[in-house]
Design a protein around this nucleic acid. Structure first.
Lengths: 206, 206
DNA sequence: ATCATAAAATACCAGTAGGTACGGAAAAAT
DNA sequence: ATTTTTCCGTACCTACTGGTATTTTATGAT
C-alpha cells in the first residue's frame, strides 16, 4: 500500500461517509440480526444511495464482512486487550465477566454479540462474510489459548487441563453469558452461572 | 373439542398430507434456519400448493408455530421424558448428555436445536411463533426445575444452590453443547466441557 | 474553455417474497 | 340430476429484494 487515504485529487469529490455507513450497518445487523436487514433499509437509515453503497462495499456480502470487521475493531478489541494484558488470571477473568455483563442499554449499544449471531447463521451469509467469521473465531480462540497457556506458566491454571478444550469451554461460557444477558436474565444470576462454570475448571475464584 | 379428527363426510376429500408438510417444514426450518426458508420453497419441497398450505396453517407465522410444536412433540419429548423419569440424578444427567451428543448424521436428523434457533431470532418471527417459543422455554425450564427439586429431596443435589438459577445454568450448558456439536466440535471435547460445567455445581460425577 | 475523471442519484431490472381471487373438481345430500 | 359443501391449484396481486445502466454533477488537468 502506497497511498491509502491519499486524496486522488481528480474527479468529483466523494461525499459518502464510509464510517457512518459502517456504523449504521454494524448497529443494524447487531441489534436486529445479520439477515434481518436489507440493503435498502441500511441505505435509508444511513442516508446514502444504493449505488453509493455498492461502489463502496461491492455487494451485500462485502458490506456485511466490513461491518463485522468494524465490530471487531470497535468491540472485540476490548476483549482482546483483556486477554493479552499482563495481569493475574483471575483478574483477567473478572474483567472478562465485567465486560460481558456491562449494561448495554446504559452504554447505548445493542445486546448480544454480532460475531456470535453471524456464527449461527453462516449458511445464510456470503463467502466473504464467512471467511471473516472463521478468521475471527480462530483468532479469538487462539488468544484465549494463549491467555490460558500464560496462566499455566504462572501456576494460575491447572496444567493437566488441555488448553484447546479449555479455550473452547471458556469461549462457550462467555458466549452463553452474553446470550443470557440479551434474553433479559438478571445480572446476578448470570454471574452465578459464570462462577459455577469456571469453578468446574478447578479454579479458586472468590 | 368433540370431533377433532372426525371425517366431515361432505365436500371434496382433502388430499393435503398435513403431517408430511409439517415434517418438511420442521426439517427445513431446523436445518437451514427458521428465517432462511420461504413459504414458496416449503411448498415446492412438500409438493403442495400455496393456497393449500395457507388453508391448513393460515399464515407463515401459523406454519412456523405448528412446525415448532411438531418439533416439541417429536424431539423435545425425549428430553422431557428423561427429566421426568424416576431415576437417580446422575443417571438422568448421563442420559441428557447422551441425548445431546448423539450422532445426528447417523440418525438422519439436522444438527442444532430448532427451539434454540427460533429463540435467537424472535424479533424476526410472528406473534404466534413467539408465543409458542415462550411457552416452550418456560415449560422446559419448569421441568428442569422440577427435576432439580426432586434431586434435592433425594440428597443428590446441593440444596444451597437456588433451583431457578441452577435450571437456567443447566439449560444453558445443554444448549451450549448442542451448539458446539452443530459447529463440528469433537464429541469428546464437548463431553469434557459438560463434565466441567456440572462439576462446577458441586456434583460428584464420574 | 474544454476535457478527462470520478462520484452522485434516479430510475430501472429480473426475481421472489407473503398472500389471495377465483373457477374447477370431487364428494355427500337432496 | 341437481345442489351444496369442501378442497384443489392456476394465476395473479403488491411490495420488496439484491443489483445496475445511465445521466448528471463536481472537481483537477490541459
Amino acid at each position: 500500500m502506497e497511498a491509502t487515504t491519499q486524496k486522488p485529487h481528480r474527479g468529483r469529490p466523494k461525499t459518502l461517509d464510509r464510517d457512518h455507513v459502517l456504523q449504521v450497518a454494524m448497529e443494524s445487523y447487531w441489534s436486529e440480526g445479520p439477515t434481518a436487514i436489507s440493503i435498502n433499509e441500511i441505505c435509508r437509515r444511513a442516508g446514502v444511495s444504493k449505488p453509493g453503497l455498492y461502489r463502496e462495499f461491492g455487494s451485500e456480502d462485502g458490506l456485511r464482512r466490513t461491518a463485522l470487521e468494524a465490530y471487531r475493531d470497535a468491540i472485540l478489541a476490548q476483549l482482546f486487550e483483556i486477554l493479552s494484558a499482563d495481569i493475574p488470571f483471575n483478574d483477567a477473568l473478572d474483567a472478562l465477566i465485567e465486560l460481558a455483563l456491562e449494561d448495554r442499554a446504559k452504554l447505548g449499544i445493542p445486546a448480544g454479540c454480532l460475531l456470535g449471531q453471524m456464527r449461527q447463521c453462516r449458511n445464510e451469509l456470503g463467502p466473504q462474510t464467512n471467511e471473516a467469521i472463521e478468521l475471527m473465531c480462530k483468532s479469538s480462540l487462539a488468544r484465549i489459548e494463549d491467555w490460558i497457556d500464560r496462566a499455566k506458566k504462572n501456576g494460575q491454571f491447572p496444567v493437566e487441563i488441555p488448553t484447546a478444550t479449555a479455550a473452547l469451554y471458556a469461549d462457550a461460557q462467555i458466549a452463553s453469558a452474553i446470550r443470557m444477558q440479551a434474553e433479559g436474565v438478571a445480572k446476578n444470576e448470570i454471574s452465578k452461572c459464570l462462577q459455577w462454570a469456571f469453578r468446574g475448571l478447578g479454579l479458586a475464584h472468590p
